Amino acid sequence: MPIGSNARYVPANIQKAEWAVADVEYFYKIQANDPLRSVYVPGAWGSGRCTGTISQGKLPVPDNLIVPDAGKYSTPNNPAAFLLPDGKTLVQLNPLTRCTAGGNVYGWRTEDVSIYGDGLRGGRGGSGLSSIGGSIRLGELTGTKPIRHALKINLWANKYLHYSSSNPGYRWPADRADGYAAEHYKGTNPKLVMGTLLAIPPNVTKASLGLQTPAGRKLFHALQNYGGYVVDDSAGDAHYLSVENGVLEEFRATYSYDFGGTSGIFYNDLMKLFRALHIVENNGPNSVGGGGTPRVRMAPPIGN
Rank of each mutant, 00 (worst) to 15 (best):
M1F: 14
M1A: 07
G4A: 08
S5V: 06
A7Q: 06
R8D: 08
R8V: 11
P11W: 12
A12V: 08
A12D: 07
D23I: 00
Y26S: 03
Y28P: 01
Y28W: 14
K29E: 09
K29N: 06
N33G: 11
N33A: 04
D34I: 00
P35C: 07
R37C: 07
V39H: 02
V41F: 00
P42Q: 03
W45M: 11
G46A: 01
G48Y: 15
G48W: 14
G52C: 04
S55W: 03
K58Y: 01
P60Y: 02
N64P: 09
I66K: 07
P68M: 05
P68G: 04
D69C: 07
D69E: 06
K72V: 05
F82E: 04
P85M: 04
D86W: 02
L96C: 03
R98E: 01
N104C: 10
G107W: 02
T110S: 11
E111H: 09
D118K: 08
D118N: 13
G119F: 00
G119W: 00
R121V: 11
R121F: 02
G128K: 14
L129N: 05
S130A: 13
S131P: 12
G133H: 09
G133D: 12
G134W: 00
R137Y: 00
R137P: 14
L141R: 12
G143N: 14
T144R: 15
P146H: 09
P146I: 02
I147G: 15
I147Q: 15
R148E: 12
K152R: 14
K152H: 12
N154C: 12
Y160G: 00
Y163G: 00
P168S: 03
G169C: 12
D178I: 07
D178S: 04
D178K: 13
D178P: 15
G179V: 11
Y180A: 02
E183Q: 11
H184N: 10
T188V: 07
P190H: 05
K191V: 07
T196Y: 12
L198F: 15
A199N: 04
I200W: 04
I200L: 10
S208I: 00
A215M: 00
L219W: 01
Q224I: 12
N225E: 02
G227Q: 03
G227I: 07
V230C: 10
G236R: 12
A238R: 14
H239Y: 15
S242T: 01
S242H: 13
S242R: 07
E244A: 05
N245E: 08
L248M: 10
E249P: 15
R252Q: 08
T254H: 14
T254E: 08
Y257T: 05
F259L: 10
G260L: 09
G264W: 10
G264L: 11
I265R: 13
F266W: 01
Y267R: 05
N268S: 03
L273W: 04
L273H: 10
R275V: 06
R275M: 12
A276D: 02
I279M: 14
E281G: 01
G284L: 04
N286T: 10
S287P: 11
V288K: 13
P294H: 06
R297W: 05
A299G: 03
A299D: 09
P300R: 12
N304C: 04
